[in-house]
Design a protein around this nucleic acid. Structure first.
Lengths: 351, 351
DNA sequence: TTGAAAGCGCTAACAT
DNA sequence: ATGTTAGCGCTTTCAA
């Protein structure tokens, strides 16, 4: 593989001139420039980014860490990130963590060793994580994505208010026995906030919030769990009339389990999701859900990160222009309630 | 940020010893090792991967180029890739191209400049692309993903046979008027092969293949297009009874358009997809589709790439162990037909 | 406008 | 077991 020296020799100039020709063509005489370009082309010269990055003060690399791409909500977000960095000459280093805190630590460390200019992270639980404080202390440019941590640099929706609004819609449809279904509650700051929002809405309507029904997210036998739970509730004579699922993927799985258990949605049971996956609109009945603007969340997070990076010295990480204080705080994007066919009046109480 | 020299000084040894302590601990006296580790910890030393990569013969970076993550089929594949490299200490550099051939060129060049050890690519059209030959000529380790190019290093299903089998199922259900719906046919080698398979199945049954109905993939107004087309067909008295969609995402969009046009699936029209997206099983009716093992495609492609990389000298790219010839050829994974509620007997001809 | 030279942080001979 | 040293390929003063 030809290096800059080979090009210099062939063009009859020094390596400094080649470097200039490539990076600041206006600094070099047109004639020389042409010779360098010709030489580079003939030798199929491909600049080694590692050399440049080692020498320079920035790598142009952005580290992205997400729990999984199996949930389209994260894939969508990543599309937004891609869109935001498109044309900036930056590249993405991607890692997924499967919601595993240890993998989170390792992944971040790896990304930092590669000298990424900044980090875009979705943590399983940003509240119980010292990671972010460490990063801030080290002066690493970083934005949280989806995590809903008011005092931190993050981009999200107001999960609590959004959930409350969704549940209020269920109540308005006539439901009083509403249960929230979620993955492990302790493992996700978003799920926790959504549960708080559920509680808010129930109490505002004078109803008693019920314990959440937690399902292991990684278990293959989710359908089985749901059916057991339903049977149990049935025996207790306490079957709810509506389920609020902490995310759309879960809602889809739950709906399938309901179907397998012989329950119809929405006739026997209403279902509300959270996320706003595009696929929800293609179902029939369409999935009622709390929509978060996933692509925009990704896009904004990336834009904020870029602003953060560009507002500081690349080598030292020290702010060079006065930092936009808002970049260190949460950016809350608007959510939306999508009404859908999976929510109707409870059985026996048509409105 | 502390560098290896700082650690050496603090540990009272040379930088070479520090390097050894980090990379080959067994070469260094336990006592020294401890001193180095202590020094590294105290200084919060974070090895600079760029230095190592510049010096070494491999970067541990894998370049991944996919058309989009908006289609879960690629997100799934990426999960498989992640799974395969997990634990190998390698990282992914990810780029999406939106099926744009120019972006494909640029992306590959960028990845190569970063000195990735190998490339995992899904090209819009691998047949009309000289890129792969160029890469092969340069000795770049590379595997195509999903592209179905018999003579090339790729991992895919037999798109033609798979499509034929799917269409045969439609025919078996009693359909004779079957149209294939697809994105721009010329832009995708997969769509082309699936169309060939469609033709095979039609002819095998003594039916005349019809021209494909091509819809612009990037258009927001797909539903509109579908309705227009249906109306036109209606006027001509040539409305098909079944649609074979070249991928599941398209099938979902088409089904929505059908619903909006007042047609019921499968009563008025049967629909068959291709991909086997998990979400298809959650719909009701469930989506009948030709399933490709997306995660496995990603996983196998990554494994083959790693084998390719490890079987050659990192610096020169020259084979050092005798290269497994099969890595240069297509690996065809088995597909599967998933029967689903979207396919039934044509109207008026119940079986 | 161009060149010489000093590194960026690390690894791997080679020497001790 | 450890140290010395020569780069990996590039950018960027500083001088000419």
């Amino acid at each position: 593989m030809a290096d800059i020296r080979d090009v210099a020799q062939r063009a009859g100039c020094s390596i400094a001139t080649v470097s200039r020709a490539l990076n600041s063509p206006q600094l070099v005489r047109p004639e020389t420039l042409a010779r360098v370009q010709a030489a580079a082309a003939e030798l199929k010269f491909r600049p080694n980014a590692l050399g440049r990055q080692l020498r320079g003060e920035r790598t142009g690399l952005i580290g992205v860490m997400l729990p999984t791409l199996g949930n389209p909500v994260f894939a969508d977000c990543l599309e937004g990130i891609e869109a935001a960095i498109d044309g900036t000459g930056r590249r993405l280093l991607l890692v997924t963590t499967q919601y595993d805190p240890e993998r989170e630590r390792n992944a971040i460390e790896t990304l930092l060793q590669q000298r990424v200019d900044g980090l875009l992270l979705t943590l399983a639980d940003a509240e119980h994580s010292a990671l972010i404080d460490d990063l801030a202390a080290e002066g690493v440019a970083c934005q949280l994505v989806y995590n809903d941590a008011p005092e931190r640099p993050c981009v999200s929706v107001n999960n609590r208010a959004a959930a409350a609004q969704g549940v209020a819609m269920l109540i308005e449809a006539g439901h009083r026995d509403i249960v929230m279904v979620t993955g492990a509650l302790h493992a996700s700051d978003r799920a926790k906030r959504r549960y708080l929002g559920y509680g808010d809405a129930m109490q505002a309507a004078g109803l008693t919030p019920l314990p959440a029904f937690e399902i292991d997210f990684n278990s293959g036998a989710r359908g089985e769990r749901v059916r057991e739970w339903l049977a149990q509730r049935e025996r207790d004579g306490a079957r709810p009339t509506a389920l609020f699922c902490s995310n759309d993927l879960l809602a889809l799985g739950v709906m399938r389990a309901l179907r397998e258990a012989g329950l119809r949605v929405p006739d026997d049971m209403s279902v509300l999701g959270f996320d706003g996956l595009a696929v929800g609109e293609l179902l029939s009945p369409t999935l009622a859900t709390v929509v978060q603007p996933s692509v925009d969340i990704g896009r904004h997070a990336a834009q904020r990160l870029l602003a953060q990076i560009e507002g500081r010295d690349g080598r030292t990480g020290v702010a060079t222009t006065l930092p936009d204080a808002s970049l260190g705080q949460a950016l809350i994007l608007p959510h939306e309630i999508r009404r859908g066919g999976t929510v109707a009046a409870p059985p026996g109480k048509p409105r």
